[in-house]
Amino acid sequence: MLDHAMIVALGASVILLLVVLEMVRRRRLKEEYSLLWLLTAVALIVLSLSRSLLVALADLLGIAYPPSALFVIFIGFLMLILLHFSTVLTRLSEQNKRLAQEIALLRWEVTRLKAADHGEGATGGGA
């Protein structure tokens, strides 16, 4: 029942799934950030295998050629992943800002304390 496009889609999804799993295993990718990728791969595999599900979905979306529906679904998942990344980026840049501010404030404290220390030492030496 599988046509050419579906076989390619199946192969690509399986490779995606394996690559993501391997990256998580090697701790190159955090579980938190792999979830959406795994979900994407699994959804694509299910849709590539089950022609009837894909046809039903294509009908629902008003798409004449069912394998095109695969791309639409795939793009939908990519959008989700990108949006997720954008929120992560926002959080990281906020944390980054706070760290930079604390570093600036601590650096001044160190400068001030060193100067105070130095000043006391010099006075002590002179007396």
């Binding site: 800002k97 930079a100 501010q101 570093i103 600036a104 404030l105 650096r107 001044w108 400068t111």
Partner: peptide, 17 residues
């Protein structure tokens, strides 16, 4: 009083410091 930002953070974050 010197507040050296470790890199350019933009006027908003700099003022907030």
């Amino acid at each position: 009083i010197t507040l050296h930002m470790p890199f350019n953070v933009g006027i908003g974050a700099a003022m907030q410091t």
